[in-house]
């Protein structure tokens, strides 16, 4: 009988090696860079298009529209489109392993399920955070430059609502405006937490089409259906759904309004997204541990 000469490995060491392996895996697949490149392109593209249209029609907008206007959120409008590409990427990272059978090779190499899931979430989370912050800061800078070029005027952040309503020039925020830089950062954090939720769903569903379907339903379809219901029913639900939390996180307003109703406080929204991601990943880990690969 052979005696094992392999020294025992502490969990931390297993985890760092699993992280290194997952990083090699994610960066050596072309679809990673296609998805992330598309996310940047869509976000920045939309952040040029929409602000120029809004600025153009500013003088003819209703008072309600002007009251709802958020100079931080508008240049971040492209994040709404980027989140779809980001979600598909998050799904593929895990479901492509299931569709190809590679998950069995992965689990034979890293049989501790918690370490594997943790390493995947860490690598995906850090990579997405870097790209998402690139997306949000670029979108914001490009979008607000478009607003300024379209007749907008920089605000100090101390203006009253009345000033915003009566202004003939569309108000434009800068990163120096109080609360703006952190809101732009939070917006990138939203994309990161969102992709971790999708990763968790992917570990539960294990199928690309199913995971993407659930993600799209969560982001687009369910809010649209709820929007058709009486506001007294739909509003409390919608404001706790990820897409509304994303809007709230990218806003400086403590309590602003959205098309469907109120938004949560930006930090409360952040916390709720963290809780969602943690819960979904925990369920994913639980199922990964119990099910046959």
């Amino acid at each position: 009988m052979t005696t094992s000469i392999i020294p025992a490995a502490p969990l931390a060491s297993k985890f760092t090696h699993a992280v290194r392996s997952e990083w090699t895996k994610i960066r050596t697949i072309r679809s990673t860079w296609i998805c992330l490149g598309l996310a940047v392109l869509f976000a920045v593209g939309l952040s040029i298009l929409v602000p120029s249209l809004v600025a153009h029609h500013w003088s003819t907008r209703s008072l309600a529209d002007k009251a709802n206007y958020d100079p931080t959120s508008l240049p971040l409008v492209g994040v709404g489109l980027a989140q779809l590409v980001i979600g598909v990427f998050g799904a593929l990272v895990i479901t492509s392993e299931y569709s190809s059978g590679a998950i069995r090779t992965t689990l034979a190499a890293v049989p501790r399920r918690g370490i594997l899931l943790g390493a995947k979430a860490t690598v995906l989370g850090i990579l997405t955070l870097v790209v998402a912050e690139l997306i949000t800061f670029t979108s914001f800078l490009v979008g607000s430059s478009v607003l300024l070029a379209s007749g907008g005027r920089t605000i100090s952040g101390n203006e009253s609502l009345v000033q915003q309503l009566t202004s003939t020039h569309i108000p434009v925020a800068t990163l120096a405006t109080p609360g703006v830089a952190v809101a732009v950062f939070r917006s990138g954090l939203y994309l990161t937490l969102l992709i971790l939720i999708v990763l968790g769903i992917g570990f539960i569903i294990r199928n690309t089409a199913g995971t993407i379907a659930i993600f799209v339903a969560l982001i687009l379809i369910v809010p649209a259906i709820l929007g058709a219901l009486p506001q007294s029913i739909s509003r409390p639900i919608i404001e706790h759904m990820p897409s509304s939390l994303g809007t709230a996180m990218g806003s400086t307003h403590a309590r602003t309004t959205d098309y469907a109703g109120t938004l949560l406080n930006p930090w409360a929204a952040t916390l709720l997204m963290v809780v969602y991601a943690a819960v979904v990943l925990l369920i994913g880990w639980f199922m990964l541990n119990r099910r046959d690969a």
């Binding site: 090696h17 290194r20 997952e22 090699t24 050596t28 392993e97 190809s100 059978g101 590679a102 190499a109």
Partner: peptide, 29 residues
Amino acid sequence: EVGALLDAKALHPGRSARSHLKSLAESNA
């Protein structure tokens, strides 16, 4: 400690042979 060949097709088709083996080597120090 244990090397296994179960299903030769159980790997991501988009990755090169070298990257595939590199990721496996890294996962086990």
